[in-house]
């Protein structure tokens, strides 16, 4: 018996995603992104919570000094769209469920801890690498920028290098 697939054929999804990316480039002259939006969120929150500290730290100060609100940015709006688009898709395909995705050999708590750790690294790396898998690697590859290919190879190369040591998390 064949197992039922819940998901779209990845090649079709890839072509569709490519067309979305092409649309973004054609309309706005820029690729997709994600991590930049979180920077905007963090900046906005920080400037609410600790405005003095923001003014003192050059990295944040340079971001709030612009007249526009940090959340009124292309990426922030786009990621808001991603959230809604994901929700719509999940609702249509019946995947809305509060749950924790994890490998068979770890507990949910372990999974959460490692998710946070992974998030921290990704947040840090995406700032340093000027964009994440979507902003730097995917969009960068589409416009044939060297940075896109270097970032892509660095992400997946390192991923394969360390995958063995963390196999317990996933298999």
């Amino acid at each position: 018996m064949e197992t039922k697939s819940k998901y779209l054929n990845p090649y079709i999804a890839g072509v569709l995603l490519g067309l979305v990316l092409l649309g973004a480039i054609y309309i706005s002259g820029r690729g997709l992104g994600a991590s930049g939006a979180f920077k905007d969120v963090v900046t906005a929150t920080l400037s609410k919570v600790a405005p003095d500290h923001v003014a003192e730290t050059p990295y944040w100060a340079s971001r709030v000094s612009q007249s526009e609100h940090p959340l009124k940015s292309w990426l922030a709006l786009e990621v808001l769209g991603v959230l809604i688009g994901g929700f719509i898709s999940g609702a249509i395909s019946g995947r809305l469920k509060i749950t924790v995705d994890k490998g068979p050999r770890i507990t949910s708590a372990t999974r959460i801890v490692f998710a946070i750790l992974g998030g921290i690294l990704f947040g840090l790396g995406a700032q340093l690498g000027r964009g994440c898998t979507s902003g730097a690697a995917l969009s960068g590859m589409a416009v044939l920028s060297s940075a896109g290919f270097i970032t892509m190879m660095a992400i997946f190369g390192t991923g394969y290098l360390v995958a063995y040591f963390f196999r317990k998390l996933w298999i």
Binding site: L32, G33, A34, S35, F38, V79, V82, L83, I84, G85, G86, F87, S89, G90, R95, L96, K97, I98, T99, D101, F114, A115, I116, L117, G118, G119, I120, L121, F122, G123, L124, G125, A126, Q127, L128, G129, R130, C132, T133, S134, A136, A137, I150, T151, M152, M153, A154, I155, F156, G157, T158, G159, L161, V162, A163, F166, L169, W170
Partner: peptide
């Protein structure tokens, strides 16, 4: 270096930022 850090983050966290948003959206 940024890519390498993200690579480790990918293994540990199992997501990248864009995908984590969609996953968060469905709970």
């Amino acid at each position: 270096v940024g890519g390498a850090i993200m690579g480790v983050g990918f293994i540990l966290g199992g997501f990248c930022p864009g995908t984590s948003v969609t996953a968060a959206a469905i709970g």
